[in-house]
Amino acid sequence: MTLYSKITGTGSALPPKRVTNQQLADQLATRGIETSDEWIVSRSGISARHYAGEGVNASDLGAEAARKAIEAAGLQPNDIGMIVLATSTPDHFGGFPSTACIVQQKLGIGNHCAAMDVQAVCSGFVYAVSIADSFIKAGAHKHVLVIGSEVFSRILNFEDRTTCVLFGDGAGAVVMSASEEPGVLATALHADGSHADILCIPGRVSHGAVEGSAFLHMDGQAVFKLAVSVLEKVAKEALEKAGMASDQIDWLIPHQANIRIMQGTAKKLGLPLEKMVVTVDQHGNTSAASIPLALDQAVRDGRVRPGQNVMMEGVGGGFTWGAVLARM
């Protein structure tokens, strides 16, 4: 019998605090930074984003999304054999203990469970799904919880309007389970460290102090150019591995970073924009959380249905990119 991995439950979490472009523009004006709703929308397609409150960490949002995904899968927390959590904003400095372990504790899952974080920035969820798929197909685990959770508001420089208007906080999760029916049809992952400097946090810790900047840095034009190039190619690579054509994609769920990148990718794949799930307008760029957030929203509003083929793809700092083609 061939063993497959299948997405059996989805969940998401957004902090209650919603910040519109106008509200953000008003806040930035007090710092002498000029921007506007029109400026932000025209460059990114973003109208609003959510910010986590004080004391709310990636593990809190991740655990909330995870509970919903586990419930949707018809399981109990202790049915989970492994947690793979993608984040660039871990609870603890240096990323240890892992945020996945903190989520495990908050869910009350016993020590039969393995847990680890994955760092691939905005591609993190795609990387994490691919890892979970491999463990399930190898027979190592029956149910794997995959989470993307971020509190990017903590690493934004609100003196830099080119980056601070783009990002938001949130979490999304899926339960992946062993199945006799095809679920994940193909994955494709890539990285190119020669582009490490175009999207990064350039600071580092030395003797308890930060050397350099602890804020996110992005060369927007370079990221845009590279993203448009690689997203089309990696989607086609996943399709080729699955022996499928782009017209067999029911839904495209790209990383929600910039509406122009997303629309350009759909066009290159020959997909109508009506087949693309868009949440960037209301969530902003939530990095590793963006794809599972969008997936959960589309599942719960009835757009994504069982048996449909969903292409999920992301690109992020590293530089990393990847795609997952899955049958729901």
Results as ranks from 00 to 15, higher is better:
V151F: 05
A29P: 00
T99V: 09
I83M: 05
P16F: 06
Q104I: 07
P90W: 03
A66G: 10
L107Q: 05
Q263D: 14
D60Y: 08
D197I: 06
E180T: 14
I70F: 07
F158A: 04
S42Y: 00
D281C: 09
A196T: 13
V228P: 06
G270F: 12
Q297C: 05
L295A: 09
A100F: 04
D79E: 14
D301G: 13
L199F: 08
A323P: 00
S12D: 07
T10P: 00
H92C: 07
Q23F: 07
C200N: 14
K267Q: 15
I136L: 03
E232Y: 08
V210I: 15
T163I: 14
F167W: 07
I136T: 06
G270L: 12
T320Q: 01
S206A: 10
G317S: 15
A58E: 02
L252M: 09
K268E: 12
G32K: 08
Y4F: 15
E71K: 11
K106V: 06
A238N: 07
N78T: 14
S123G: 01
S246W: 03
T20R: 03
S88I: 09
A266P: 09
D60Q: 10
R303P: 09
A65N: 04
D219N: 15
A128V: 04
H195K: 13
W321C: 06
A48Q: 05
L61D: 01
K142W: 00
F215Y: 14
H207R: 13
A294S: 15
L75T: 09
N78W: 04
L75A: 15
V19L: 13
D91R: 03
C200S: 13
G322N: 03
R300P: 04
V175L: 08
A323R: 00
G108Y: 13
A326I: 14
L231E: 08
L3W: 07
G208F: 12
I253Q: 03
A13R: 02
K106F: 03
V175C: 06
V129R: 02
E34H: 11
I201N: 06
Q76R: 14
A52M: 02
S134Q: 14
H92A: 09
N21R: 04
M276G: 07
A63L: 05
A288K: 07
A132G: 13
W251E: 02
V299A: 07
F158N: 11
D26K: 12
N78H: 13
N57Q: 10
I253M: 10
I33N: 00
G9Y: 04
G322M: 03
S179R: 04
D247H: 15
K17E: 12
D192W: 11
C164E: 05
G172H: 01
M1A: 12
A69G: 10
A86E: 11
I102G: 00
L295Y: 09
T320R: 00
G307P: 05
A52D: 05
L189A: 04
S98T: 15
H190E: 12
M244C: 06
M244T: 01
A114F: 10
T286N: 08
E54V: 01
L107M: 12
A100W: 02
V324E: 00
G148H: 02
A128T: 09
P292S: 13
R204L: 09
V234I: 15
H255C: 10
G74T: 13
W321P: 04
G220E: 11
E274S: 15
V146W: 02
K17N: 15
D192T: 12
L271I: 05
L231T: 09
S44V: 06
Q282H: 14
S179H: 08
V205R: 00
E150D: 12
